[in-house]
Simulated assay, not measured.
Amino acid sequence: MSDDSGLWLLALGPAGAGALYWAIYRYYRNTDKSHAFERETTVDAGPVTGSEHKVGEVKGTRKTRIAGDNVRAYRERVKGVG
């Protein structure tokens, strides 16, 4: 028996680690199943409408976020076409 017969076992470690990393990456990212809203969504801009009536005023607030904002809910802000 030669010393080269065990080299496949040493090569199996890095190859297995790479395969495991890729499988976990694909499982959690779901890049093939996610809606790519940047490419698949059109946003039609309309004319700006509104008025100049003062609605309210906030002074001295320490809040860093606006209540009810949808900054992180991009799938609700931008709807797909069709």
Score class of each variant (00 low, 15 high):
S2N: 06
S2A: 10
S2D: 12
S2F: 07
S2P: 01
D3P: 00
D4E: 14
D4W: 06
S5G: 04
S5V: 11
S5I: 10
S5W: 08
W8M: 07
W8D: 12
L9K: 04
A11I: 10
A11D: 08
A11L: 13
A11C: 13
P14Q: 04
A15H: 03
A15T: 13
A15D: 06
G16H: 01
G16T: 00
G16F: 00
G16R: 00
A17M: 12
A17V: 09
G18F: 03
G18Q: 04
G18M: 01
A19Q: 02
A19E: 02
L20M: 10
Y21N: 07
I24E: 06
Y27A: 09
Y28P: 00
Y28T: 05
Y28V: 11
R29T: 10
R29P: 01
R29A: 15
N30S: 14
T31K: 15
T31S: 15
K33I: 01
S34M: 13
S34Q: 15
H35I: 11
A36E: 12
F37T: 01
R39N: 09
R39E: 13
E40P: 02
T41V: 13
V43Y: 13
V43A: 09
D44K: 05
D44Y: 11
A45K: 06
P47W: 03
V48N: 08
V48W: 12
V48K: 05
G50V: 01
S51P: 02
S51E: 13
E52T: 11
H53P: 06
E57N: 14
V58T: 15
V58Y: 06
K59E: 13
T61F: 05
R62E: 14
R62A: 15
R62Y: 08
R62G: 15
K63A: 14
T64V: 14
T64C: 14
R65E: 10
R65F: 02
R65A: 07
I66M: 09
I66A: 15
I66R: 07
I66Y: 09
A67Y: 06
G68C: 03
D69P: 00
D69T: 03
D69G: 08
D69K: 02
N70V: 00
V71L: 14
R72A: 04
R75H: 14
E76A: 02
E76Q: 10
R77Q: 10
V78F: 09
V78P: 01
G80M: 04
